[in-house]
Design a protein around this nucleic acid. Structure first.
Lengths: 268, 268
DNA sequence: AAAATAGTGTCTCTAAGACATTATCAT
DNA sequence: ATGATAATGTCTTAGAGACACTATTTT
């Protein structure tokens, strides 16, 4: 093996070409539903199918930089203005044959953003849109816990390549990270109410939470929320007192964590 | 961007070549200390330095398959006999310039194994060895919690490329996964005592645990341990009754989790 | 007035951690 | 006998969850 490796060290072009791409699983919340940024492929393979935004890594470009660039290209947000967008590496997918053209190793990134604008028209020849995740037919929390699945309206789309798996992995990661990191604050504006934060958890987890217990719980986690000292201008749309406003604190981990309800079933 | 992407789609060789390698962070426990499989590089760059075992991905080879192959090549264990070895993807490292020769994107895998034999002599021209992790000068749990660091004997080695960072990330992952998965059982034999399991936690976390509370705790986690019904042949080397033997249960997640002591300091 | 919501109080139960205790084994 | 260890018991405290309740606001 050493000789082979030795040769490869000095002439890697002797190997069949491998392409490295960056794909982005970008989540946001719109109208109380979790949405995912997708682009419709114009060219084969999988022409006409929806796929994750992504593309080849540029020379001299770091992987997270490439992910931010791909995200910026599709959303129209300036790459430098992605300040409130959280970006983290999700995983790398490189099974032979996952792209019929050649060996493609794809590094997937996960992005969380507050409600971003619709993809800028004409920014790309491919159509791009925020698509409700629950229209993709992925197994959700309700499926896992045996409760009846309520398929939400919207066309069920089959994603190109292995992107359905990548999205499923990203969804798992997102659900898990809400438990022990302040990630949920990335889905809301810089100042938010506890009810808005709770809506994030309920949307991503696909479960309803007890408002009173949630309220006390998040306030008890050190460094999670900082009180702004002000309240909303009005009460809720259907009544209720004005809610206090909070900002994200400096905690990077939540301790104690906010555990999802009833995870025993998913343990085995 | 579309044209560029379009062209690239059909002629990826137009891009500067990118190499994809697989590196393995393989941990095992020897003599109560956490060890890491390293190889000494024979050729430049970083000749003479220790590095993670790894190499270029073979054509038509899946990424985890490649990781298992690299591990098998260095440990002498047959690739098919890696049954008790846990393998999972750690992350992908692709910063430009991390390899001075060319653009190299490296997919790192994390492996956990019970005590494996010394690397088979002559299996590779490079020297390979199990190296104590605490001789690498990485920040350990004691460092993070402000307690005095006791550097254990052994030469402090500077690893090649960005492998020190990769190992640090792997160590973080391992410490974290002990909390909420039955991963610790991968470091011991098929049948083990609770004291042996506790030694794994203490070794990886770099902290001492209360024997009695640990005992009751692991037995209270559903599906973590299955009793064999037998005990060890002898008591401990320094006395004590014979310990009951257990096997790993069918739980894939520990609920409730075994949290590390005093993590508040690392939260911010 | 009626309904909805923010925020707090109370109670129960689980679990973590500190510590003690008993039984068993090696030297 | 002595010391070490396995395994269990006890007590205190923190936290999760269910539920009730008050105050505030909108329609």
């Amino acid at each position: 093996m050493t000789e082979e490796e030795f040769l490869a060290t000095y002439d890697p072009r002797a190997y069949p070409p491998v392409a490295v791409t960056v794909d982005v699983v970008a989540f946001t919340i719109r109208d109380g539903r979790l949405h995912l940024l997708l682009v419709r492929r114009a060219a084969p393979p999988h022409a006409g199918h929806w796929a994750l935004p992504g593309g080849f890594v540029h020379p001299d470009e770091d992987l997270p930089t490439g992910a931010g660039r791909e995200l910026a290209e599709e959303t129209g947000v300036q790459a430098g203005a992605l300040g409130r967008v959280h970006l983290e590496q999700l995983g790398t997918y490189g099974a032979p044959g996952r792209d019929p053209r050649m060996r493609v190793v794809s590094v997937a990134y996960l992005a969380f953003a507050p409600d971003l604008p619709d993809p800028a028209a004409g920014s790309d020849a491919d159509e791009a849109a925020w698509v409700a995740v629950d229209s993709l037919g992925l197994p959700d929390a309700a499926t896992l816990t045996g409760r009846p699945v309520q398929q939400r309206p919207g066309t069920t789309r089959k994603l190109a390549f292995d992107h359905t798996r990548i999205v499923a992995d990203g969804l798992d990661r997102a659900r898990s990270k809400l438990e022990y990191t302040p990630l949920a604050t990335r889905f809301v504006g810089p100042e938010f109410t506890i009810a808005e934060l709770r809506a994030v958890y309920e949307t991503v987890w696909g479960d309803t939470l007890h408002a009173g217990n949630f309220h006390r719980k998040v306030l008890s986690v050190p460094g999670f929320l900082d009180s702004v000292g002000a309240t909303t201008d009005r009460g809720g749309a259907r009544g209720g007192p004005r809610a206090r406003l909070y900002r994200a604190g400096d905690a990077r981990l939540l301790h104690p964590a906010l555990l999802r309800p009833s995870r025993e079933e998913a343990v085995r």
